[in-house]
């Protein structure tokens, strides 16, 4: 998985991106590179992952919608804890993130 595909390294107003400390999180068991200080949902976008959960009844894919912790579409299972808003939860090295797949879990 390419690390920098969706990362904005150069920016005409914000300049060069300062290198944060790189950490590794696991999405459904697969390793993903992330940068310390960023929320899980952002790290997933950077890795090109847009699905945060499957809806409970119809199992439709959902993704982060508001990025400010209101819509709850980005809720995932983090280190075993369900319903964690990943747009407001920062990555930690070794964190295990799982995609909720409806009520069937």
């Amino acid at each position: 998985m390419a690390f920098n595909n969706f990362r904005i390294l150069q920016h005409p107003v914000l300049g060069e991106k300062k290198n944060g400390k790189e950490v590794r999180i696991f999405l459904d068991g697969l390793p993903i590179h992330a940068v310390e200080g960023e929320p899980i949902a952002a790290a997933l976008y950077a890795a090109g992952v847009r699905i945060t959960r499957l809806s409970p009844h119809k199992k439709e894919p959902r993704g982060a919608f508001c990025m400010i912790g209101r819509c709850t579409e980005c809720c995932m299972i983090v280190d075993g804890e369900p319903n964690v808003r990943t747009c407001r939860t920062m990555v930690r090295d070794g964190m295990r993130v799982e995609t909720p797949r409806g009520w069937m879990e």
Binding site: I8, E38, Y45, G63
Partner: peptide
């Protein structure tokens, strides 16, 4: 509107300008 990739403009702005990550 529930498809991943549909989002508020402010959400996209948070991603690009604070986290420096493109939503797509």
């Amino acid at each position: 509107w529930t498809l991943p990739g549909v989002m508020g403009a402010g959400a996209a702005q948070t991603l690009i300008n604070i986290h420096r990550i493109l939503p797509g």
